[in-house]
Design a protein around this nucleic acid. Structure first.
Lengths: 190, 190, 190, 190
DNA sequence: GATGAATGAGTGTTCATTCAT
DNA sequence: CATGAATGAACACTCATTCAT
């Protein structure tokens, strides 16, 4: 028998991300995706149970890649501000290196498919961040407010700024990221 | 000749928002929307050139309603911080009173339809905000950074916090909004 | 607006029966049926909810036509044997005039679709028959056995004999039908 | 060279019958059948030329099993009526012991596949029955009518009565079979 | 012999849009 | 203006079968 071909699965992943970026969620049909991956539509169903599975799997894949990249130099002993700064930089770097992942993620998160992913599984990747925030609160370094609030000021601005569509005048370079982080830190620090 | 029926147009607007909220962009077909509005699919084409026109118009409509609500008590002579605070509150209030508009907006903005709207037309509603920011910079009240940056810290956190999906533990009430605004202000103030 | 066209529905009915006869239930796809009826597959869905609805409706239609034809000269005052004989003749005549209805019916009844029809609705057409049988039992003309048994000997032989496939040597003419009825009557009479 | 595996063939036979019974002819795909038999779809093609071959072979298999069971105590010297009675009982017993064979047979016989089986080969199993009928005619015990007619009254009622679907009130037990046979005999006896 | 991967051709169904009234 | 009927094109998905191992 033939061996299941990782190349094909990878091609499908890439084709999915690419097409969703280019023509959007709505128009990204199974056959277009398969075509883009140089694979028969029927073959797609060897690797994924159905379209939903394809999209959800792709989303989770991206989230994993992202959290792995962002949190890799995390557990060290620097002061909280420096750790957050590192994370912030990693995120920006990753976002500007893989804007296509970001765009896919945004479309996915704003679609009904989003309700199909096991939130806890995805969110647990970010648990270290939350723990760090809590530690900061205890140490009276960070404002003692709802953690969701802290996260909102730490992450949502990044999403906005990384989105070329909505931020045309903001160039992503080290100086600007530094400035942006200062603002984020001002928002959450005590 | 009968006159185009505003009631029908309004029904179509509401049906579009409702359906996109309930079943998502992908599944919201013209005939379902027409059905929901108790109107024939053919009638929809009396009021809108095509599906794209329907969605784009609905989006612009929402953006207008929003900016009108937010900016209505804007041009007064309060200190900058108070004005921004008012705007911030208006936004939150509007967002929590019309979550369906927010959800529609998010789905739309993350779809290829978004590229079809005349950005300048939409953004001009927010020109007063930008002017205010610039005034704040001149007065050395607000950080002298790229305006996009200021806007990112003023608006994106709201989107995150208003989104019940991503912020389950953050209850929207006056105290919490006040706290959140303080953070936003800390981020941008000099 | 255009008027719904009874001719199209009739064409679909005929096309369904014809195709099921010619290529069988399994191969009779929606598009082939629509094609045969000179109608777009999409149009079929104007008249029927889905394939299941098409087949079930066609089946019920045939059953109705059949029972109407068979029972039309039923409620008269002839002796039971004569009434049954009339019915028997009507059935044979109908079956040989519309073999395509018979074949469709058989394929349908032996398919999983069969479980979707409301049996009671279909069977009520044959209630007069059952009542007659019961009257015959009371009058000591017909054997006092389970009605299902009586029906089995009254109807199943007809199905076999009407089926050109299984009965190649039995010519359907008045003499032969008479003979056959005599046998059926011998089976059930006391 | 390995030897074709009778166990696998048997498993495929059983899976075919089971699936056709459970989900019907239309939905019984090759891969589902292979799956049910715990065998790869490709393996199925080692044992059968194609799907048609699988179904036709299964049908012929069943017919053989059936005729073997029914005719096994046939060639003895009892009176015709007793022999027929034995056959009749055997049939009922077999039918109620193997309803899945019956259901498969009915679906198959009412499908276009049926035209693919060599009728003479199948029918020859029932030649002894036909010979017996002819002997009965010569001996003036059985009505001198077309043999197809005699067979229709001998067999079709059994099919109806064995079909749980169409005969809900007829319980299959020795007394009832006896009664039924009496009716069949009344139908054909002189 | 045995198999999972692979696929072109087809499935039933819905789509955005136009037509005829 | 208003509409249900009509449809070609596309949809997600499954099929029977073959391929490569």
């Amino acid at each position: 028998m033939r061996i299941k071909d990782d190349i094909k699965q990878e091609a499908l992943f890439k084709a999915t991300v690419k097409l969703v970026n280019e023509i959007g969620f709505v128009s990204s049909s199974v056959s277009k995706i398969a075509n883009e991956a140089n694979v028969s539509p029927a073959t797609l169903y060897v690797y994924y149970k159905n379209k939903e599975d394809l999209l959800v799997s792709t989303y989770i894949d991206i989230k994993q890649k992202f959290s792995r990249a962002v949190l890799k130099n995390f557990g060290n002993n620097l002061p909280i501000r420096d750790i957050l700064r590192n994370v912030w930089f990693s995120m920006f770097k990753y976002a500007s290196r893989h804007p296509e992942y970001f765009k896919f993620t945004e479309q996915f998160a704003n679609s009904p498919y989003n309700s199909l992913v096991n939130k806890e599984e995805v969110e647990k990747y970010f648990d270290p961040m939350i723990n760090m925030m809590q530690k900061g609160i205890e140490q009276k370094i960070i404002k003692d407010v709802n953690v969701d609030l802290l996260m909102a000021f730490m992450f949502y601005p990044i999403m906005g700024l990384s989105n070329a569509r909505s931020c045309k005048n903001f160039e992503i370079n080290d100086d600007n990221i530094e400035t942006a982080f200062t603002m984020a830190w001002d928002a959450i620090k005590l």
